[in-house]
C-alpha cells in the first residue's frame, strides 16, 4: 500500500518538475517565464520530499527533515520570484509602458526617500 503511495508521489513529482523546467524553456516572455518554475518548486519537489518522508516511515525511522526542506522552499520561492520580477520591471520596462493602476502608481517605481 505504501509502495503505491510512494510510487504515485514520485511520478507526480517527476512530471511536475519536468513541466516546470520545460515551461522555462518554452515560454516566450520573461514575465511569463517567472510562472513556470513555481510548479517545479512547489508540487515537484514537494511530492518527492513527501515520498521520501513516507519511505523513511516504512523503514521504521520517521524523520521531519523533509518537511523542513519543504517549508523552507515554500517560504523562499515567492521571495526570490518577487526579486526577479522587480529586476524585470526595472531593467526591461519603463514606467510609462506599463498599464497604470487605478488611483495610485506602481509602488516599486516610487522614490523611497520621498514622504508618503
Amino acid at each position: 500500500m505504501t509502495d503505491i503511495l510512494i510510487t504515485l508521489l514520485l511520478i507526480i513529482g517527476a512530471v511536475f518538475g519536468l513541466i516546470g523546467s520545460f515551461g522555462l524553456w518554452k515560454l516566450r516572455q520573461p514575465m511569463q517565464r517567472l510562472h513556470a518554475p513555481t510548479k517545479a518548486s512547489t508540487v515537484g519537489v514537494g511530492a518527492v520530499l513527501l515520498a521520501s518522508a513516507v519511505h523513511k516511515g516504512t523503514q521504521g525511522q520517521p524523520s521531519w527533515e523533509e518537511l523542513l526542506v519543504l517549508i523552507f522552499l515554500f517560504i523562499t520561492a515567492p521571495v526570490s520570484a518577487l526579486f526577479l520580477a522587480k529586476v524585470h520591471l526595472h531593467k526591461d520596462h519603463a514606467p510609462q509602458d506599463l498599464p497604470q493602476p487605478e488611483g495610485s502608481e506602481w509602488a516599486t517605481y516610487k522614490n523611497p526617500d520621498e514622504p508618503r
Binding site: V15, G17, A40, G44, V48
Partner: peptide, 8 residues
Amino acid sequence: AMGGFAAG
C-alpha cells in the same frame, strides 16, 4: 523521477 529531473 531521476530521468524527469535530469531532463529538467
